[in-house]
Design a binder for these strands. Structure first.
Lengths: 195, 195
DNA sequence: ATCATAGTATGATACTGATCATGTAAAAAA
DNA sequence: TTTTTTACATGATCAGTATCATACTATGAT
């Protein structure tokens, strides 16, 4: 059948979002083309009209994740002072909600250990995303008046990602909450942010 | 044939080490029974004389990894003051050598994002390993005279694991080194450790 | 109204990988 | 020396999965 011009684009976007969700939840290896297409309400056959291969899908989905994450940072910091914006972002990043929403959260925490095993295009896509995230965080810290903003941003990102990863590993709710709380407190104190 | 009594144990240990190496390098999903057995110098058939299933192998391999990591911490801190021991451990953990040796390094950094997707026995094994690591690090920090040693240990582990993960993601050597350096400096300064 | 077309569906192929049934060899036990 | 036993090898099965060839269908163009 002949749909309107944007139909294919919309379908592609739907497939991409389904892939981005599934990949974060189940990892790139356990995600199958057929499953993603089914989640998007389609069958597996049409897949190759949108993507050359599964690898290409993974790479594109990673790009999508970072785009969504960027929007999230913008949203949390928009219209606030640097200090308040950063505090809000830390509160979100190290929240129970974020911890329990692997499918939609930060790609770095969701896929950290998968990245070194990814095929090149997907990996490059990821590296680009990480670099840009670092730069953006560095800008916020520079706005806060930090001198070595880039190094601070790297260190802060490390603790954010590590704490979220550990909180997702821990199965005991109280202990997991404690992991998040410890890093929230530490980061805010260190950067003199309002709690 | 009938080997001496320890033969089977030795074989099992060899298979476990091969699995522990492969799982950290390639992830639990890309590791196959046949490949692990081949690496151990055997064929795939005998596998089920040692392990009930691949899942059981993964769980046992994770236990092995944490045991090795514990030995490493002991080795680095033995016979030193708490401050010097901790500094030495941080230097190792955030070294280029550790970054480039995923197959043999810290299981938390190598498998962080795989853990929430693991089958229950393997996951419990991992959680136990993480808790014990936290406790041991807390003891070192308590020995350093820190009051809230447990919270400090959690925060420190988060930054260690996050920094190593990020350094392994970054493909550019200089940037990757900078990630390690930023967290090394930050952690040592924060805990008043010798550099 | 008819037809050509684009977006999907159906079904097939080829491969990989976990698991299991059975065979084999050599040393210990008789 | 003969018989067991045990650790492992061989080969088969079954399921899952990426990819591709082909068929279908409803619309926009004629």
């Amino acid at each position: 059948m002949r749909y309107d011009t944007e139909h294919k684009q919309k379908t592609r976007a739907t497939v991409l979002q389904a892939a981005a969700k599934a990949i974060r939840a189940d990892g790139p290896d356990r995600v199958g083309v057929a499953g993603v297409m089914a989640e998007a309400g389609l069958t597996h056959g049409g897949f190759y009209a949108h993507f050359k291969s599964k690898d290409e899908l993974v790479a594109a989905a990673i790009g999508q994740m970072f785009e969504d994450a960027r929007a999230r940072l913008e949203h949390d910091t928009a219209g606030r002072s640097p200090a308040e914006g950063l505090a809000a972002y830390i509160d979100f990043y190290l929240s129970k909600k974020h911890r329990d929403a692997r499918s939609f959260g930060c790609p770095m925490a969701a896929l950290a250990s998968d990245v070194p095993r990814l095929a090149d295009p997907a990996r490059e896509q990821f590296v680009t995303g990480v670099r840009q995230s670092t730069i953006r965080l560095g800008e916020k810290l520079a706005g806060l008046g930090h001198a070595a903003a880039e190094a601070e941003a790297r260190s802060m990102m490390a603790e954010l990602i590590g704490a979220l990863s550990l909180a997702r590993i821990e199965t005991d709710a109280k202990r997991s909450d404690a992991i998040l709380a410890a890093s929230r407190a530490q980061l805010k104190q260190r950067f003199g942010l309002p709690s």
